[in-house]
Design a binder for these strands. Sequence first.
DNA 1: ACAATAGTGTCTGTGAGACAGTATCGA
DNA 2: TCGATACTGTCTCACAGACACTATTGT
Lengths: 220, 220
Amino acid sequence: MDSYDSSLYEKLSVAVDLLVFTIENDALKILMVERGEDPFANMLALPGVFVGIDETLDDAAKRGISEEAGLEDIYFEQLYSFGDVRRDPRMRIISVAYMALVPIEKLNFHAGKRTVSARLVDVCTLLESDTEVAFDHKKIIEYGRNRLANKVEYTTIAFHLVGEEFTLPNLQKVYEILLGKSLYKANFRKKIAPLIEETEFATSGEKHRPSRLYRRKQGI
Amino acid sequence: MDSYDSSLYEKLSVAVDLLVFTIENDALKILMVERGEDPFANMLALPGVFVGIDETLDDAAKRGISEEAGLEDIYFEQLYSFGDVRRDPRMRIISVAYMALVPIEKLNFHAGKRTVSARLVDVCTLLESDTEVAFDHKKIIEYGRNRLANKVEYTTIAFHLVGEEFTLPNLQKVYEILLGKSLYKANFRKKIAPLIEETEFATSGEKHRPSRLYRRKQGI
DNA sequence: ACAATAGTGTCTGTGAGACAGTATCGA
DNA sequence: TCGATACTGTCTCACAGACACTATTGT
């Protein structure tokens, strides 16, 4: 920018909204909070925080994930910025959406501040139903879901939804949920093979053949 | 968000920075302006505008493209938001970067406000050299260039860099520039064939076989 | 032995890559 | 006819998809 006549422009509130995705009971879930006050009282909303004056966007996202979901060191990436004028009926707020992925074992959102109102919501059910969601958050969730579905195909992003060690049937299920279709075992394994390495462990106790545990291959 | 204690948070300036890409002389170029004042006086910067209080992000981008580049109705998409704390030495500014693509024939940036200081800069040269660029704009350009290079492979985004009617050798050249490698004619044509339709026209006047003009197939 | 799920071998078709060939203009 | 570029036919090979087969647990 050449001329910084910023005096002509009112400053704006900037918030980070968080899409914390996980897989629970063979379904994609997202962390949401029930709003206690108007506007949109008693409706579901995404957790979020305002961006501090001395805080980068990534730092705000990290803080939000910690405060609202009680999580540290999880994968996240910036998604998109939403800036419709009336997306919040009270005031102008720009929302920079971030998407975070966490394996269900690691998720313990009762450690966050939202201990009462936070809960996991089935993403498909939410998007396919007419359930109203606070602000433009339904649109944001849809955007995130689409990005996630796309990235599964050409990245290794799905690994962030399983633990350090995982079985291939398990990982395949995650792919199937995100892609919304079933896959052939053999083909899936061939495709995933170069990305993983065996561990010496396997599951046990189930009334069928145990499945070997794998971990992600390092340094690729 | 549940609690909107926004009083605790200072509001921020939000700007839209524009990456207007085009192809000129068989090279990817980007529209930049020479800064007249400090900070970064006499250095190159991206054109940009502040986001108005009653203006969506997309509208601000559209306005910027019109004011700074003199262009209407061209393709653009939101790229990424940059929010490092000290990216502008004077004040905290969040920048939402937008990428726009325009065929060189359509580009007439002297119609914009930056008639003096605006010019096209070779992207590869800029990124490979040590040339300093104002603010974090070099990083932003690199991000945009990468997005563009990626999207060429799995979208039809390259069509926005040629006119309504184009020859296949021409379109292929655009792909080659963006991908940074040469392609086989026959393979390229097979891949592009379903997306285009012949016109009745062809080039002429050159001292070799003329090439047919195509246009994009509608409704796909 | 059987149910249930884990895991493998292999055929097929599609599509990208490589290359050699033919076509059509101006001079 | 020749130089130059436009355009096409076809072989090969890698890889995704489909499916049938074998392996290993608990009961």
